Computed example of a mutant assay.
Amino acid sequence: MANESLKENRILAAPVVVFLLAMLGFPAILDLIYSISTVSFENLRDPTISGFGNYRAVLGDPYFWSAVSFSTRFGLLTAALETALGLFLAVFLAPLIQRRFWLMAIFMMPMIIAPSMMGLMYRLVLHEFVGPLPYYLFEFFGESPAFLSPQLAFRTLVVIETLQWTPFTLLLFYTAYSSIPNDIREAAKVDGTRGLRLFTHIELPALLPTLVVAFGIRFIDGFRVFDNIYVLIGSGAGGSSTSLSIYIYTAFFKSADIGKALAASVLLFVVAFGLLWLVGWLLKKRRPA
């Protein structure tokens, strides 16, 4: 019976697998070929396979490692902040949202805005000469920091990313928090487990798989960030705000070094795939036998 059910599931999943192979498989193979080729816009249709020189060039490029460092720090910090804030807001606001669920639509509004539009909006708001925030800070306190300067750009970008995507983790944690059976909470309260102890011993362990998923998704998204940073500040002074995605974009479109750009993109794909596999493995380890 189990074998028949497995066979039926494979048959039902076959069209999706074929579609993904057709839509994603061909571009992926093409990227792999270009990444080991000497290719530019002149010979794009007839690349010359040259081995792993593009990978050596990428791995030997200090700007690549600077971009990796920026993306890693940015991804880890934003993922940690978004996960912590989303968890806190989900637990703290759960009673209010249960009574007035329409509030969730308001909380989701920052997430609906396209990241590029969010970057453009904050570029106007934080502009040193015409931005309203620096203007009022100067009016009230006599000075205003340069939010987009090389010294403060990283912190500004982290705050903007956190403000936009914390609603995503809020939605995940609220859904998981609401799905915890009330019988478990009531039984724990009968045994004298209340308040913070109830959260740390009963609710938080139940939320742990969601926490791992939320942190993993937000880290991957932060690691490959491109549009809002590129619109807001670009690659920054001396490449100070160059993420790995901006590095790939610059190598492809501005330097026309297609092979090098695609080699870097393959490395980015490998890292993202490895992180997704790690998240899945952690969730599988927690699943009861």
Rank of each mutant, 00 (worst) to 15 (best):
M1A: 08
E4C: 00
I11F: 11
A14T: 14
V16L: 14
V16M: 15
V16P: 07
V17W: 07
V17Q: 02
F19A: 04
M23V: 00
L24D: 09
L24C: 15
A28P: 12
A28L: 15
D31Q: 07
Y34R: 12
I36S: 07
S37F: 06
S37G: 03
S37Y: 05
T38F: 00
R45V: 08
P47F: 09
F52M: 14
N54V: 00
A57S: 13
L59N: 15
G60S: 14
G60N: 14
D61A: 10
V68Q: 09
F70T: 02
S71Y: 08
S71D: 06
L76T: 04
L76K: 06
L76I: 09
L76E: 06
A79N: 02
A80Y: 00
T83V: 01
L85V: 13
G86V: 02
L87K: 08
A94M: 01
P95R: 05
L96H: 12
Q98M: 04
Q98K: 10
R99M: 02
R99C: 01
A105Q: 02
A105R: 05
I113T: 11
I113D: 10
A114R: 08
G119N: 11
L120M: 13
L120K: 12
E128M: 01
E128Y: 03
L137W: 08
E139K: 12
F140D: 00
G142Q: 07
E143F: 10
P145F: 10
A146G: 13
S149E: 08
S149M: 09
L152E: 01
A153H: 08
L157E: 04
V158T: 07
V158P: 06
I160L: 14
I160G: 11
L163P: 03
L163Y: 11
W165I: 06
T166M: 12
P167L: 12
T169C: 10
L170M: 13
L171Y: 03
L171M: 12
F173D: 01
Y174S: 00
T175A: 15
I180G: 12
I180V: 15
N182K: 09
N182Y: 01
N182A: 04
K189M: 14
V190E: 09
D191W: 09
D191F: 06
L198C: 11
F199P: 02
I202T: 01
L204H: 03
P205G: 05
A206M: 04
L208G: 07
L208M: 13
P209H: 06
T210A: 06
T210P: 02
I220R: 07
D221G: 13
D221V: 08
F223R: 13
D227V: 00
D227G: 01
Y230I: 03
Y230F: 14
L232F: 10
G234A: 15
S235T: 13
S241M: 11
T242K: 14
T242E: 15
L244K: 05
I246A: 04
Y247S: 12
A251L: 05
I258T: 01
K260P: 00
K260N: 03
A264K: 05
S265I: 01
V271R: 05
A272T: 05
L278H: 04
W281G: 02
W281A: 10
K285F: 05
K285S: 06
R286I: 02
